[in-house]
């Protein structure tokens, strides 16, 4: 086979893989505007009916409010945890640094269903389950590593002499942090906040276990899907996609586009 044919075949395969990955996302958006109750081909007519019903649904509205509270609070806590760890890793070396970093980096390697059971059992044992803040606690642990990774990457780019110069000129460590490190890290911090909010906004397994009666949007989706085929899921899902993708794009704009610059 000539090299050119191989290239064409490889790129074709890449395209198929991307189609596989994006087909469900596109289908959800398309079917959310489709009038048929049972989504079939050929499509029915265009409608915004499913959006009207979800906006009229008080339970979904409540869930949306819960989701916003949870993801905003999570992103604040996770970004603070991530910043503290990233800065500690950047500036200090000490014995047990490995275990210290493992403490914040390991949660994503443990299956969510196991974290869900462990969080449910522990939080109810200490009397902290079934609340909105139970989800916030759990999500902050799950998402902090993402914040840590992004802020750590940014700290790689700083000139270590800058902070030392501030100390030499008589500024305290806190002052140097506030006027040198934090401004330098700001794009990464905003980006970390967006990404942790996006992850929290989509997380359903742990939220389902620890939330009690305080359902978030993904938990509502889980319950609707368990019932039967309901095109409302596509409408909710499309709005969730829109939210998450906006957050990811914002993160990209704030961070990845600037990573090359110092």
């Amino acid at each position: 086979m000539s090299a050119r044919i191989t290239t064409v075949v490889l790129l074709g395969w890449l395209l198929l893989v991307l189609v596989f990955i994006f087909a469900p996302i596109v289908a959800a958006v398309v079917f959310s505007f489709n009038s048929d109750r049972f989504p079939t081909i050929p499509l029915g007519s265009f409608t915004t009916h499913w959006y009207d019903t979800i906006f009229a649904d008080a339970e979904i509205g409540e869930a949306a409010r819960n989701s916003i509270i949870v993801s905003l609070s999570t992103s604040v806590i996770a970004t603070m945890l991530g910043f503290a760890t990233a800065y500690t890793d950047y500036r200090y070396s000490f014995r047990l640094k490995g275990p210290y970093l493992a403490l914040i980096l390991l949660p994503p390697t443990i299956p969510l269903i196991i974290m869900a059971l462990a969080m449910l059992a522990w939080l109810s044992w200490i009397g902290a389950s079934g609340q909105l803040w139970s989800i916030i606690i759990a999500h902050s642990v799950l998402t902090a590593p993402f914040a840590m990774a992004i802020i750590r990457l940014r700290l790689n780019q700083i000139d270590p002499n800058l902070e030392a110069a501030a100390w030499n000129l008589g500024s305290s460590e806190w002052r140097a942090l506030r006027s040198v490190i934090l401004p330098f890290c700001r794009p990464a911090i905003v980006s970390a906040a967006c990404l942790t909010a996006a992850v929290s906004f989509d997380e359903f397994a742990v939220a389902w276990f620890v939330s009690g009666l305080n359902k978030t949007v993904p938990v509502i989706i889980l319950e609707i899907v368990q019932g039967n085929i309901d095109p409302q899921v596509n409408a909710i899902g499309s709005l969730v996609f829109l939210t998450s993708i906006t957050l990811v794009v914002l993160a990209q704009v704030f961070f990845i586009s600037r990573i090359g610059r110092t």
Binding site: I25, A28, D202, I221, I229, V240, I245
Partner: peptide, 21 residues
């Protein structure tokens, strides 16, 4: 960047879409 997007979009809704497809 495109491949990162699904990582942050609802896995549940994507599964439901496959269900329909």
């Amino acid at each position: 960047f495109l491949l990162i997007i699904p990582f942050f979009t609802s896995y549940l809704v994507r599964t439901f879409s496959w269900y329909v497809i």
